[in-house]
Amino acid sequence: MAKQFPALTADHRKFIEEQHMFFSGSAGPSGRVNISPKGMDSLRIMGENRILWMNLTGSGNETAGHLKQDPRMTLMWCSYTRRPLILRCYGTAKTYHPGDDGWDSRAVEFPAHRVEFPAHRSARQIYDVTVDMVQTSCGYAVPFMDFVQDRDTMQTWVDGKSDEDLRQYWRDKNTTTLDGQETGIPV
């Protein structure tokens, strides 16, 4: 049975930190709804009602375009191990791009973004999520799956690109949503 909470509990936080992936959901007032799987070391719980998510370069940029129109966001985690559980965080998000006021103070929360670990130099946004409701549900129909390892494909791709190559990719692939809405990415 689903249960709602006004904030993340210590148990919720532990569950989230044990998961290797999560899903983000967003939508503008019209057009397509977007749901994306996310992984790597890209999420930080900052408090009972605050989550930071560093969004890395990808083939689309739907979330950024949606949030320019409507700040609603849902994050979801599923357990694929013995403990059946689905956890969703509902709320709103503010977008920060590299160079924006507030970017550096958020980016420092991600060790891989620090100068000595340039692994996330392809980060195009950080979403600062304000959680207004947490919901748990049973997850009884979610299959068991074993985690093998994170993929290195993204990092290998990034390592083969210059900073200008990444910006050109953003210009080519990340400036508008599937529905033609601007994403606000600085190119």
Rank of each mutant, 00 (worst) to 15 (best):
I45Q: 06
I45R: 09
M46Q: 11
G47T: 06
G47H: 07
G47P: 05
G47K: 06
G47M: 09
E48H: 07
E48S: 13
E48R: 08
E48Q: 13
E48A: 15
N49C: 08
R50S: 09
I51V: 15
I51P: 08
L52I: 09
L52K: 03
L52C: 05
W53S: 10
W53R: 00
M54D: 06
M54E: 07
M54W: 04
M54C: 13
M54S: 14
N55H: 11
N55G: 14
N55S: 15
L56V: 08
L56E: 05
T57M: 15
G58C: 02
G58Q: 02
G58V: 03
S59E: 08
S59P: 03
S59Q: 08
G60Q: 07
G60T: 14
N61D: 02
N61L: 04
E62M: 12
E62S: 12
E62L: 10
T63G: 06
T63S: 15
A64S: 15
A64N: 15
A64R: 12
G65H: 13
G65K: 12
G65W: 10
G65T: 12
H66Y: 11
H66E: 12
L67P: 14
L67D: 10
K68A: 11
K68S: 10
K68R: 15
Q69D: 10
Q69P: 09
Q69Y: 00
D70G: 02
D70E: 10
D70H: 13
R72E: 04
R72F: 06
R72A: 10
R72S: 11
M73N: 00
L75C: 00
L75R: 00
L75Q: 00
L75A: 01
M76L: 09
W77Y: 02
C78W: 00
C78T: 01
C78E: 02
C78V: 00
S79G: 06
Y80P: 07
T81A: 14
T81G: 12
T81K: 13
R82Q: 13
R82G: 14
R82H: 12
R82M: 08
R82A: 13
P84F: 10
P84A: 11
L85D: 01
I86P: 00
I86R: 09
I86M: 07
L87E: 04
L87F: 05
L87S: 06
C89H: 06
C89V: 13
Y90H: 15
Y90V: 02
Y90W: 08
G91A: 05
G91N: 07
T92Q: 14
A93N: 11
A93E: 11
K94I: 01
K94T: 10
K94S: 07
K94F: 02
